[in-house]
């Protein structure tokens, strides 16, 4: 074991891990964080706390993680390289670990163009892969990125993202390998709607033996409506929503679409369980956290194992 992370313990014990997501509020509303966390209690092994997701200012991932931790859940601190330089990142990592946060996800972050501060400067002092390497060196070498020794090194369980659906497809497995070589202990993938394409990607992953070097959590998202399905299909860069799923959502009356979305999500999880190399699921129910318990229940992911 590299860390004390609950997520690492679950994965190391060979259980299918489950992570959820909580987007912090756009204002000083700690109760909102508690409310979202409540839905996920006992349902997931760790809760991703997003970091200014979609480049919109929100309560910091760090602060919301602390609140979630106080509620007795395991926060998974997301950190984007867009908003911080390496000094700031390392300071936050040390701070977070000092407050009991031991799991994090290293991302480059959505471009500011998409958010509500398009006039802001993108920092990108490091990219996500260089960030992974920095966190690993902090943990394993006890060294700051600049080379100096850390007194009391943060032992982070290090996650990274992978998008099997972005272009160029042939590079996607190699990029995963790069993240693993840099130190990614676990991977959370982009939302999977196109299962055959994900399976094709996993075939490449297995061919390189990457599933033995890292834990891959397959990302899933329940669609709330046919409108949401279309939005993800057309508007979200790097998302692959097959037309047949949009048609299926459209084929049911409006008031039954939410249920259809959940059904598709559960079916997807069932299918992905069969894919060799999938070590768990990352359920991204965006602004729909209350559905996660039901999805987990129906997908046979409950009760969560005790480790």
């Amino acid at each position: 074991m590299k860390t004390d992370s609950k997520l690492e313990k679950i994965l190391a014990a060979g259980h299918l891990a489950v992570t959820g997501e909580c987007g912090p509020p756009r204002g000083c509303m700690p109760d909102k964080v508690r409310e979202k966390a409540k839905y996920l209690e006992g349902v997931v092994d760790a809760v991703n706390i997003t970091d200014n997701q979609t480049a919109m200012v929100r309560m910091s991932s760090f602060a919301a993680s602390v609140i979630v931790k106080q509620e007795g859940l395991n926060p998974l601190l997301q950190m984007v390289s867009r908003d911080r330089n390496r000094l700031s990142m390392q300071a936050d990592i040390i701070g977070a670990y000092s407050l009991g946060i031991d799991t994090m996800l290293c991302l480059s972050g959505d471009h500011t163009r998409f958010g509500d501060h398009p006039m802001a400067l993108n920092v990108h002092d490091l990219d996500s892969i260089q960030m992974i390497k920095m966190v690993k060196d902090m943990r394993d070498e006890g060294k700051f990125q600049g080379g100096a020794e850390i007194k009391g090194a943060p032992k982070m369980f290090i996650g990274a993202a992978a998008n099997p659906f972005a272009d160029p497809f042939e590079l996607r497995v190699m990029r995963l390998a790069k993240k693993i070589n840099a130190g990614a202990d676990f991977i959370q993938t982009q939302c999977i709607f196109n299962v055959p394409k994900f399976e094709q990607w996993m075939e490449g992953v297995r061919k390189m033996g990457l599933h033995k070097k890292t834990y891959i959590l397959a990302g899933v998202t329940p669609m709330k409506s046919v409108g949401a399905a279309r939005f993800m299909q057309k508007r979200v860069p790097g998302m692959d929503v097959p037309q047949e799923l949009v048609d299926r959502m459209a084929s049911v009356p409006k008031e039954e679409q939410a249920e259809e979305g959940v059904k598709i999500c559960v079916e997807t999880i069932q299918r992905l369980k069969q894919v060799e190399g999938v070590s768990g699921f990352h359920i991204m129910a965006i602004e729909w956290e209350e559905k996660v318990p039901e999805i987990c229940e129906r997908a046979g992911l409950l009760p969560r194992p005790q480790v």
Partner: peptide
């Protein structure tokens, strides 16, 4: 657009950058 030295990011689509279809994905 993100100065990634180890790209491409997950927004690369059909050779274009996620910020603008008229901008080539450098990676």
């Amino acid at each position: 657009a993100k100065r990634l030295m180890n790209g491409p990011c997950g927004g690369s689509t059909k050779g274009s950058c996620e910020i603008d279809p008229d901008t080539d994905c450098a990676w």
